[in-house]
């Protein structure tokens, strides 16, 4: 006991920092990066996702509220919507880009939100795996379908 004084707090990087002249035990600061900390843990994905939610959120406020205003509020609201109305709007590259950006940002924003919800509530690893597999499949499918529709829209289809 008197010789191996580090045993109570485990081995500390840099060896024993205390002795007869310096009797206070040296305790590593919590979560301090040391030589034994893995270099790459999970990377910065979660931080990037957190930041993406905020940045895409700001853009989506403008894109989605503008979209709602045009589709549900102005010029008779939902009553005016039809193939001809869609054709009229997608004749302009401005609205094509608007809708494309809104599709991508909203799908990625929503998918990441649902990923968080699944991580929070699905307690079994297998359940999480399957739910997220379903989520990612549906997300990729929807983004690709929507993108294809915007780029290949043909006003003279009939």
């Amino acid at each position: 006991m008197s010789t191996d004084t580090t045993s109570a707090i485990g081995p500390v990087e840099g060896g024993a920092h205390y002795d007869v002249d310096n009797p206070a035990p040296y305790i590593e600061a919590p979560r301090k990066r040391t030589g034994r900390t893995p270099k790459a843990t999970r990377g910065n994905f979660e931080m990037a996702a957190w930041l993406f939610m905020r940045l895409s959120g700001i853009v989506l406020v403008v894109l989605v509220l503008g979209h709602l205003l045009i589709q549900l509020f102005l010029d008779g609201g939902v009553s005016k919507i039809g193939f001809a109305f869609v054709a009229g709007r997608w004749a302009s590259p401005f609205w094509q880009v608007w809708d494309l950006l809104m599709l991508w940002l909203a799908m990625l924003h929503g998918a990441n939100g649902l990923r968080t919800v699944i991580n929070d509530y699905a307690e079994r690893a297998n359940t999480r795996l399957w739910l997220k597999g379903l989520l990612y499949t549906a997300t990729v499918f929807t983004i690709l379908l929507g993108t294809l529709v915007i780029f290949t829209f043909d006003p003279n289809i009939r």
């Binding site: 193939f83 799908m107 829209f153 009939r158």
Partner: peptide, 19 residues
């Protein structure tokens, strides 16, 4: 949103299907 992209995709089927 998921349903909405699917219904909008009907513009690629025919104007009647969409309407």
């Amino acid at each position: 949103l998921f349903v909405h992209v699917l219904d909008t995709a009907l513009v690629r089927v025919s104007p009647e299907a969409y309407d």
